[in-house]
Design a protein around this nucleic acid. Structure first.
Lengths: 157, 157
DNA sequence: CCTTGACTTCAACCTTACTTGAGGTCGTAC
DNA sequence: GTACGACCTCAAGTAAGGTTGAAGTCAAGG
């Protein structure tokens, strides 16, 4: 089977991997978790819809923002399952991102101000210092091998 | 042994846990990893220095900022091991935080701007969209049980 | 005396997000 | 006809950051 499908209707996992920069194993993992779907060829090979690229892009961006896969799945599940998502659908999710970003920027700025107030005061202690803010739950970031998130060892592919 | 030590020179692990909000197991884990140190009583019990509270506060704040324990350890290792760290020592580390925060705020703001530009354009795809920025390696956050970072199930202790 | 509470160690387990490897299939190319 | 590359499944491994449980020690109180 050629790497670039003859009819560009569906994509093989290799083609999707190439376009997104993800490892095929990661894409299979996402399918298993229900974040993306794939039809199957008679051979058993996965056949991805072109819209899958967009879903995977969304996943990557959301991960970058610190969402866990189950949270991302919840977001994706609000997309219409039957038809291809419209621009308005993606816009809705993007606006959610934007709000989240605003909130995160606000929080970091606040922390920055607290830090400025604390530098040099020697109060670095939970008993008296407001620097530690455990409510920053939105700032969670993923775990696992990080070279899928920007510092992969092999820059090509 | 009473929970609150009669001579307030050293602290038991329970007292440190109470003051920091950390679980004793976490504190032992940090000791094992070399992030904090403890003398031992004849009984084998750990005896913590009061400065340990400050180290642990630092650890919590740094975790909140997304540093991994080994990175935090590297920072803490620049503190003088012999004498108690001075205000200037802590200030040095805090300034590092501040710089990091500035950088993170800058990056998020940039992402926010890219997002605004992308909302509605329907370009959410890695092939054409600049929204995905894999260089945000500083935004890594820890893993593990999150209820130590703000959403612990039991609000009292 | 013996129970209680706080501590000790050590090994095993947990979660998230994947990767890696073994073993097998498929279709085209030489 | 057989080698090659791309795909398949399934089980096991990895990393971080701890938690949990078992089994034992120690000092004080009743």
């Amino acid at each position: 089977m050629p790497h670039r499908d003859r009819v560009e209707q569906t994509l093989t996992i290799g083609a999707v991997a190439e376009r997104t920069g993800l490892a095929p194993s990661a894409i299979r993992f996402y399918e298993e978790k229900g974040l993306v779907r794939a039809a199957r060829a008679a051979s058993g090979h996965r056949q991805f819809d072109r819209a899958t690229i967009r879903r995977l892009s969304f996943i990557l961006i959301a991960q970058q923002l610190g969402y866990r896969l189950d949270e991302i799945k919840a977001q994706l599940d609000t997309l219409p399952g039957d038809a291809a998502p419209t621009v308005a659908d993606w816009e809705r999710l993007s606006v959610h991102f934007a709000d989240d970003l605003d909130e995160r920027i606000r929080r970091l700025t606040e922390l920055r101000e607290r830090l400025t107030g604390c530098i040099g005061c020697g109060c670095l202690s939970l008993e008296v210092c407001r620097l530690y803010n455990p409510d920053d739950a939105a700032a969670r970031h993923g775990t696992g091998p990080r070279y899928l998130m920007g510092d992969r060892p092999d820059p090509q592919r």
